[in-house]
């Protein structure tokens, strides 16, 4: 009878073994730190949940239709904030995207600066930007627009720069060899290659911005978030149910339309 055995395992270098053990120890240390550090008042949370459950959950599922008018007006404002913000970002991100792209400038310095600016912008959560702009321009929807515009520029700029880096440079070289100047090469060599993907990413970012702008109102930057915070403070969970329903519907519709358009463009 033949004996079955597994093929021999690959020899691992001691450096790799050491690295594995080190990572394992680091992860264990991280978890020990986490579970020792966190303190959750379990009894209080369970008590609260037990007493609040029937007051909150059933009401969330029976939305207050009387608030539908106000909710739809605010959700429209949310869409406007997201649209204006995404549009500004789609424009603002173009120069930054080109700046950060490695193949658009000779030296490495410019693209490094561009990448650094973009990742710095991305490190700010949208809502922190909203706080800054609410203080600057007052608690209104325009603060939300500015927050969305700046916040989206970080991500769009990065995506744009990746698109620019992935273009076929041979076309551009051929044009320059034929005597086209920089502007002509940009317009006829670079732009046709990047416009569909730029558009697609801008629309994709609009999807994300709809979600983002729906919470900006929590810090006073307009949109449906204003109603969320009022409903929560007044414990008006029926109204909260209506707001949640509106957000779910609007986000689903916009995701659907945007996915359709993006599939058509690219």
């Amino acid at each position: 009878m033949a004996t079955y055995s597994l093929p021999p395992k690959k020899e691992q270098s001691s450096f790799k073994k050491f690295k594995k053990i080190f990572i394992l120890l680091a992860v264990i240390a991280l978890y020990v730190w986490t579970f020792l550090g966190i303190d959750i008042d379990w009894t209080r949370a369970v008590e609260r949940a037990a007493s609040n459950f029937h007051r909150v959950i059933p009401k969330l599922f029976s939305p207050d239709w009387a608030a539908a008018g106000e909710v739809s007006q605010k959700i429209l404002e949310t869409i406007f904030i997201a649209f204006a913000g995404s549009f500004m970002a789609a424009i603002l991100a173009i120069p930054l995207g080109f700046l950060a792209a490695k193949n658009m400038s000779r030296g490495k310095l410019l693209s490094a600066i561009g990448k650094w600016i973009l990742s710095a912008i991305r490190a700010f959560p949208d809502i922190i930007l909203a706080i800054l702009f609410v203080v600057a321009v007052g608690p209104n929807a325009f603060a939300g627009v500015l927050a969305i515009a700046i916040g989206s520029t970080g991500m769009l700029g990065k995506l744009y720069s990746e698109v620019v880096e992935s273009i076929d440079m041979q076309v551009v070289e051929a044009m320059e060899a034929n005597g086209a100047n920089k502007v002509q090469a940009l317009f006829y060599g670079v732009l046709p290659q990047i416009i569909p993907e730029f558009l697609s990413y801008a629309i994709y970012r609009f999807e994300i911005d709809i979600r983002a702008s729906s919470i900006l109102g929590i810090v006073g930057a307009g949109g449906i978030g204003t109603m969320i915070i009022f409903a929560a403070n007044n414990r008006n969970w029926n109204e909260m149910g209506m707001i949640l329903l509106a957000i779910i519907i609007v986000v689903t519709i916009i995701d659907f339309i945007s996915a359709r358009i993006r599939r058509k463009i690219v």
């Binding site: 959750i40 379990w42 609040n52 909150v56 919470i215 929560a232 986000v251 689903t252």
Partner: peptide, 28 residues
């Protein structure tokens, strides 16, 4: 999952703070 993804994180947090009271637990 699709419905879950449409709700922004902070909105979930608002609802859970209402349910569990203020603290780390609703956030988690």
């Amino acid at each position: 999952l699709n419905i879950l993804r449409t709700i922004p994180d902070l909105v979930l947090a608002v609802v859970f703070v209402g349910l569990f009271g203020i603290g780390l637990f609703p956030g988690i």
